[in-house]
Design a protein around this nucleic acid. Structure first.
Lengths: 217, 217
DNA sequence: ACAAAAGTGTTGGTGTTACACCCATGT
DNA sequence: ACATGGGTGTAACACCAACACTTTTGT
């Protein structure tokens, strides 16, 4: 049998298949808290509970494309850097049927996000105030948080939570929230010194010394 | 509509679904080389080419269970620590149909492996001598190698490539192969000093000073 | 003048890199 | 005796935690 013949006779529907979905954990920092995008479900299962934005994987899109589409449809955001987190395959994740979920996460600066205020839309919720979520979405968020906490130390991901121009106290606050600990000012500055570029601008208006505005190098 | 009614009417076969498979990259060190388990394919597509052990995900098993099963069926190995690597979702990964692959990797000491020598069986091949593999399996191996290279520095995974009792020169060799660089003997020993336990045994027989045998702490 | 936060310098400790040297074995 | 690789000590350097101090603003 040639490969052509083989492929012609192959019928993939001979086997029962799980469904495949993508779940998105979109994080931001707002009001000095780590927040994550959630949407109230309007269908069963878990009606009226909060859940991560999600969608089934289409036959004509890669996983990355699917993640981008899900995010765009839920928020209008485009060209966000999404990174794959983990793939969840517990059998009873979803009471409807077997669904395997490929999770992604992303970080976006608060300032960049313009969500409509309607009840139907997805909204940000502080991760520390989240109670019960639909499916295993709490686990996904915890896993994403963990990943961020690790990556912040050897990558530049913290910068993706900050606008193009920022002050060092602002940036330090981001680190402190993600790491969940206070940092020494002087040490923090030494550590990120080679990643930033000073501008001529200063941010004043507070009743103390103005802080210099920086850009990412 | 109640949740019960909803679930009863829900028919998951209304949508076309991708297939889901698990690919296993099982690494060992043999003949002072990093080697990976491969099996010659005896069906289309990619007949007669080498590929990672793989299997489709059954409806009644989790991804982790599926990975354990695939490894057991191919090698007889059981209770190996398998870690999820990445999930691959390119559309044309497989010419038959859309297959999403969840990849896993594991490390096993050479001494622990007893594979039958038949042509049908999976065998180890040095990763540096691998040419073309079926599907995107070269990418998976490269990704696994990268993960190992990172994890070796902040975890104990290197110990899973070594038998229960080992000498420090043996262990150092493992590190050097995984990291692909020569290490200073004295520095290496300081780094792992808190992870090992000396025994009373020595390994002699070579024409130089015998080396002490250690166990993992 | 003072409060408040921005911004910088210094110190001690810890870990890493590189090298030099000693030790025990088989031939 | 000597070659070979096992095993240890140390100095130089880089890195990091902790703290003290100076600077610039608004009131």
């Amino acid at each position: 049998m040639t490969e052509q013949e083989f492929l012609k006779n192959y019928n993939s529907s001979d086997y029962e298949k799980p469904s495949v979905a993508v779940d998105i954990a979109l994080f931001t920092i707002r009001d000095n808290q780590l927040q994550v995008l959630l949407k109230k479900r309007n269908t069963h299962p878990f009606v009226n509970m909060l859940a991560l934005p999600a969608t089934f994987v289409g036959m004509d899109e890669t996983l990355d494309e699917c993640a981008q589409r899900a995010l765009y449809q839920k928020t209008g955001l485009q060209n966000i850097y999404l990174e794959q987190l983990y793939t969840w395959g517990e059998i009873d994740r979803d009471p409807r049927m077997r669904i395997i979920s490929v999770s992604y996460y992303a970080l976006v600066p608060d300032s960049q996000i313009q969500l409509s205020e309607s009840e139907q839309e997805a909204k940000f919720y502080p991760v520390d105030e989240i109670k019960t979520l639909a499916f295993d979405h709490e686990k996904i968020i915890a896993y994403g948080r963990e990943r961020i906490r690790n990556k912040i130390n050897y990558t530049d991901i913290a910068f993706s939570l900050v606008p193009e121009e920022f002050t060092l106290p602002q940036l330090q606050k981001i680190y402190e929230i993600l790491l969940n600990q206070k940092l020494y000012k002087a040490n923090f500055r030494k550590k990120i010194a080679d990643k930033i570029q000073p501008t001529e601008k200063m941010l004043s208006g507070n009743k103390h010394r103005p802080s210099r505005i920086y850009k990412k190098k």
